[in-house]
Write a protein that binds this DNA or RNA. Structure first.
Length: 560
RNA sequence: UGGGGCGUAGCCAAGUGGUAAGGCAUCGGGUUUUGAUCCCGUGUACCGCAGGUUCGAAUCCUGCCGCCCCAGCCA
C-alpha cells in the first residue's frame, strides 16, 4: 500500500536525497517561537517534521526560536512542549533553543564582520526604513555602510557590552540595497535589547534576528531539510547567503510548503492572543479556539487531528479547508471509539399513565452497536421520563417520525409509547406529555413484532443526574475571518450555548479525558477545567451527522 | 507598475508527454431499536485563459489573466 501511495513533494525530495546518498539520515526541526500557543496550522508542521524522520529513521529537534525576549514567555514554552507531546511526538533529548547558540551565533556574526559582509549601522529605525526604499524603488546605502572592519568589530563589541541604548546601533549584513528582494537589502542581524530573556536571563543585551539565527541554528544542528511555510520563500536567498558566507560544516536546505487554513477559524497568533487578552474567549484553551490545547479541552482526539492533516496533504497551494472535512475525521474516530450513553439536552417531561408508580425496570443497553465486545449497561426505566423537546412536535410534518399527538415512537432500549395528551402552561408551551406504553414491546424480548418508524432517547427522571452542557459552534460567521477588516466584527454571537441537561446515571462516573456519544446527539466529554464531582460540566465535541436537520434546513430555504 | 509563489470538480488532492486516482461534500438507494454507523450507486473537471511544439500535452514553449506573500531593529 505505502509503495503505491504517492509521496508529497517534500517526501519526494527527501526520498531522492536518501536514494542518491546525498544524506544518510534526515534531520528536521520544528521551530516554534514561544510567543503564543500552537494551533491547528502548527499540527501540520509538527506532523511533517516529525513524520518524515519517523518514516526514514531520522531525527527531529524541537527547537524554540527564542530570539525576541520581548515577546516570549515560559508559559508558552511549557504549553508547546505539552501540546507536541500530546500529539504523540517525542523529541527525546533533542529539545533545543536558538538561544542555546547565542555564543556561536555571536562568533558567526564577528566572522561576517571580519570578511566585510556585515557592518554596524547607526541609522535610526525611521531612517533605516526610508533608506530601504520601496517595493518598486531601490534603497540606498547607509552612510555608515563603509565603516572599517576594525571599527565595526569595536562597535559590535561595545554593543554587546551594553554601551549603547536600544535602537542606537544594529548589525546589518552587507548585501545589496538595490535588490528587488527586500530581504537582501542589508537585513538586520543583531539588535540591542536591554531585556532579560526567558532562557538566557541577563547574559545578553544584543539578540540575533530570525533569518540569521534560524539559518545558523539549522546548520549547527545538522538539519538537512528545513521545512517552513510559504511566506519564507523569499527569505531563501538570504538563508543561502548566510551558508555561502559562513560555510558551516552542514548545509541545510530550506523547502517551503503552504499553511493549512481551516474555514471559520483564525490562525494568527496575534489575533488569537487578542481573543484571549480581550476576554472574548475563556483563554488559549477555550474549547472554541483552534489551538491544540483548545481542541484537546474540547475533546478532539489527537488521532483525529493527525488524520485530518494527513488527508489535507502537503503542497504549495494556499488552502482553506472546509469544516466538514475536519468534522468527518472527528466523527470517524469518535464513532469507532466512543461508548454510547443516553442524555437529554433540553428536557421535556413524559409521564407513562399506565406504568406503575413505584416500578423500576432495568433496561439493557449496548455500549456500542458496532462493537459488542464493549459490553452493555443497565438503564433504569420508570413512570416519569425526560425526552428531548425536539423529539416532540404538536403539528408535525409528514416525514417527522418522532413523537406527535396520538403518534407512537420507540424509546431506545425501552418500550413503544403513544402520546395521548399534551399538557401546556398558561403561555401555551408544551410542558408535559401523557403517554401510554405497550408492555409487549419491551426491548429485546421479541414478544411483539410491532415496529414503529422512530426511536428516541430518554432518561428516567427519578434516576438521572443533572449536568451543564456547553454546546459550541464556530467562533466566526465568515468562512475566512483572517480576511475580515476586523475579526471582532465577524464573531459568532452564539458560539457557546449552555444548557441544563439530564444524564443517565452511569455518567456520574465518567472520568476526565473520556469522550462518549450521547445517542442521537453527538460526542461529549467532561470539561477538563470546570467539571467536578459535585457538578458535572460537559463539552460537546461535535454533533452527529444529522440528515433530518439538513432536510429541515432545505425546507426552510425553499420557503424563503 | 519590483521580486517571489500558486492556479486539476463545491473543498482538499494524485498525476512528471499517451489520452484525468482518491478523500470530503452533494445527490440517489439498501440495512438499521441512534433520521448515527455501515453498504451500494452518483461527477461531461473545456486540468485558469489563449496560442504554439508534438502522431499525441494537465504534463514542454510563449503570452495573458486571477489569487497569495514581501517595504519589523517580528517570526
Amino acid at each position: 500500500m505505502s509503495e503505491i501511495e504517492s509521496r508529497d513533494f517534500i517526501r519526494q525530495i527527501i526520498h531522492d536525497d536518501l536514494a542518491s546518498g546525498k544524506h544518510q539520515q534526515v534531520v528536521t526541526r520544528f521551530p516554534p517561537e514561544p510567543n503564543g500557543y500552537l494551533h491547528i496550522g502548527h499540527v501540520m508542521a509538527i506532523c511533517l517534521n516529525f513524520g518524515v524522520t519517523a518514516e526514514t529513521g531520522g531525527r527531529t529537534y524541537l527547537r524554540f526560536d527564542d530570539t525576541n525576549p520581548g515577546k516570549e514567555k515560559v508559559e508558552y514554552v511549557d504549553a508547546i512542549e505539552r501540546d507536541v507531546r500530546w500529539l504523540g511526538f517525542d523529541w527525546q533529548d533533542r529539545l533545543t533553543h536558538a538561544s542555546d547558540y547565542f555564543g556561536q551565533l555571536h562568533k558567526a556574526a564577528v566572522r561576517l564582520i571580519e570578511i566585510d559582509k556585515a557592518y554596524v549601522d547607526s541609522l535610526s529605525a525611521e531612517d533605516t526604513r526610508t533608506y530601504r526604499g520601496t517595493l518598486t524603488e531601490a534603497g540606498k546605502n547607509s552612510p555608515y555602510r563603509d565603516r572599517s572592519v576594525a571599527e565595526n568589530l569595536e562597535l559590535f563589541e561595545r554593543m554587546r557590552n551594553g554601551e549603547f541604548a536600544d535602537g542606537e546601533m544594529m548589525l546589518r549584513a552587507k548585501i545589496d540595497m538595490a535588490s528587488p528582494n527586500m530581504n537582501l537589502r542589508d537585513p538586520a542581524l543583531y539588535r540591542i535589547r536591554h531585556l532579560s530573556h526567558q532562557h538566557t536571563g541577563d547574559s545578553w543585551c544584543i539578540y540575533p534576528l530570525y533569518d540569521f539565527a534560524h539559518t545558523m541554528s539549522d546548520a549547527f544542528e545538522g538539519v538537512t531539510h528545513s521545512l517552513c511555510t510559504l511566506e519564507f520563500e523569499d527569505h531563501r536567498p538570504l538563508y543561502n547567503w548566510f551558508l555561502e558566507q559562513l560555510k558551516p560544516e552542514h548545509l541545510p536546505r530550506q523547502i517551503e510548503f503552504s499553511r493549512l487554513n481551516l474555514a471559520y477559524a483564525i490562525t494568527s497568533k496575534r489575533k488569537l492572543n487578542a481573543l484571549v487578552e480581550e476576554g472574548i474567549v475563556d483563554g488559549w484553551d477555550d474549547p472554541r479556539m483552534p489551538t491544540i490545547s483548545g481542541m484537546r479541552r474540547r475533546g478532539y482526539p489527537a488521532a483525529a487531528l493527525l488524520d485530518f492533516v494527513r488527508r489535507a496533504g502537503v503542497t504549495k497551494k494556499n488552502k482553506l479547508i472546509e469544516m466538514g472535512a475536519f468534522e468527518n475525521c472527528l466523527r470517524e474516530n469518535l464513532g469507532e471509539e466512543s461508548p454510547r450513553r443516553m442524555a437529554v439536552l433540553r428536557p421535556l417531561k413524559v409521564v407513562l399513565s399506565n406504568y406503575p408508580d413505584d416500578k423500576v425496570e432495568m433496561m439493557e443497553a449496548m455500549n456500542h452497536p458496532g462493537r459488542p465486545e464493549m459490553g452493555t449497561r443497565s438503564l433504569p426505566f420508570s413512570r416519569e421520563l425526560w425526552i428531548e423537546q425536539d423529539d416532540f412536535m404538536e403539528e408535525a410534518p409528514r416525514k417527522f417520525f418522532r413523537l406527535k399527538p396520538d403518534g407512537e415512537v420507540r424509546l431506545r432500549f425501552g418500550y413503544i409509547i403513544r402520546c395521548d395528551e399534551v399538557i401546556k402552561n398558561d403561555a401555551g408551551d408544551v410542558v408535559e406529555l401523557r403517554c401510554s406504553y405497550d408492555p409487549d414491546t419491551r426491548s429485546g424480548t421479541g414478544r411483539s413484532e410491532r415496529k414503529v418508524k422512530g426511536t428516541i432517547h430518554w432518561v428516567s427522571s427519578a434516576h438521572c443526574i443533572d449536568a451543564e452542557v456547553n454546546l459550541y459552534d464556530r467562533l466566526f460567521t465568515e468562512v475566512n475571518p483572517n480576511k475580515a477588516e476586523d475579526f471582532r466584527a465577524v464573531l459568532n454571537a452564539t458560539s457557546l450555548e449552555t444548557v441544563s441537561a439530564k444524564l443517565e446515571p452511569s455518567l456520574s462516573e465518567l472520568s476526565s479525558g473520556e469522550v462518549v456519544q450521547f445517542e442521537r446527539l453527538g460526542y461529549f466529554c467532561p470539561d477538563s477545567e470546570t467539571d467536578s464531582a459535585n457538578k458535572r460540566i460537559f463539552n460537546r465535541v461535535v454533533t452527529l451527522r444529522d440528515s433530518w436537520a439538513k432536510l429541515e434546513k432545505q425546507a426552510m430555504q425553499q420557503q424563503g
